[in-house]
Computed example of a mutant assay.
Amino acid sequence: MSYVEIRKPRPHVTLLTLNRPDRLNALSFDTVVPLHDAIREAGDDNDTWAIVLTGAGRGFCSGLDLEDHGIPPNIAGLPMSRIATRAMAIFADLVPAMRAIPQPIIGAINGPSYGGGLCLAVACDIRIAAQSATFCGAGIKNGLTGTELGISWILPRAIGAAHAFELILTGRELDAREAERIGLVSRVVPDADLLECALDVADQICAHSPHGVAMTKRVLWSNLETGSLHAAMDLEARNQLLVRMTTNNLDEAIRARREGRKPSFSD
């Protein structure tokens, strides 16, 4: 049985579902390795223009499986020092993998999103929460640090340092409405509507040029690391010119508007 399901419920949309509901989709090597594979497969699929990530059952992801996180792959003959660093990298590399693929990832956050699950949520490009969603940086409550999988870099940029430091240092739980208020998620919807809402957002993205969307995602993430307004604008300008000069997208958009139809971008 695979702990990550892959299916295409709508044209150009891939749905990735963490499928370990009896453990609230907790992260073990049996979950993380196939999730890497699923992200890579969806990212390499030229017919996938947007991705939705969610969890089966009543939780998005409860973080590291504290009962049985399994054995990392390919460790035969390695000393414990190298096993430990390799194991941590398998978990941590999920976040840059999510950023690296061209398709936006929409997180459909249902139920608990704790520890590493919170990290997965904030690594999504867009986050939509069910009313049942809860969020918690659980590492600090387990005697570890509250910083893992890039959370110390992404979360302050997503919700501001004041909120991020409080959440990571206290380990307190947020409900969906507070998460919406502080900007951790963009909207909250009834549980029964969550997946359809996320798929509708994916459809909105798929109505645009996949090349334009991919370049936009790249610039949005890159400019979180840019040191000045002028540097950010330079990157924007180069990417805008690249898409303008190497595609007929703008001409098609103008024609479609004049003809009263939706544009069809060939990129």
Rank of each mutant, 00 (worst) to 15 (best):
Y3P: 00
Y3D: 05
P9V: 05
T14E: 14
L15F: 11
L18A: 04
P21A: 01
D22P: 00
R23E: 12
L24V: 01
N25Y: 12
A26V: 11
L27R: 06
F29M: 11
L35R: 12
I39Q: 08
I39S: 11
W49V: 02
L53Q: 03
G59R: 10
F60M: 09
L64R: 15
L64S: 04
L66P: 00
D68K: 11
G70V: 06
I71Q: 12
I71A: 05
P72D: 08
N74H: 04
N74G: 07
N74S: 13
P79F: 15
R82D: 15
I83A: 09
I83Q: 03
T85Y: 02
R86F: 14
A89H: 07
D93I: 01
V95W: 02
P96S: 01
R99A: 14
R99S: 13
I105L: 06
I109D: 06
N110W: 05
N110T: 01
L118R: 03
L118C: 04
A123W: 01
C124E: 08
D125P: 03
A130V: 04
T134P: 05
F135D: 01
G137L: 07
N142S: 06
N142E: 09
T145K: 03
T147P: 00
L149N: 01
W153Y: 14
R157A: 03
R157L: 05
A158F: 10
I159R: 04
I159M: 01
G160E: 04
A162N: 09
E166V: 06
L169G: 14
L169Q: 15
L174C: 07
A176C: 04
G183W: 07
L184A: 02
V185L: 03
V185S: 12
R187V: 10
R187G: 03
V188N: 02
V188G: 05
V189T: 10
A192S: 12
L194D: 11
E196F: 04
E196S: 13
A198Y: 02
L199H: 01
Q204V: 11
Q204Y: 12
C206D: 07
A207C: 09
M215Y: 07
T216P: 01
K217M: 12
W221M: 03
T226K: 06
T226D: 08
S228W: 02
S228L: 00
M233W: 10
E236Q: 14
R238I: 13
R238C: 10
R238T: 13
N239W: 10
L241E: 12
V243W: 00
V243I: 14
R244G: 03
N248A: 03
D251C: 01
A256Q: 03
R257S: 04
R258L: 11
E259L: 13
R261H: 08
K262G: 14
S264V: 15
S266Y: 12
S266G: 08
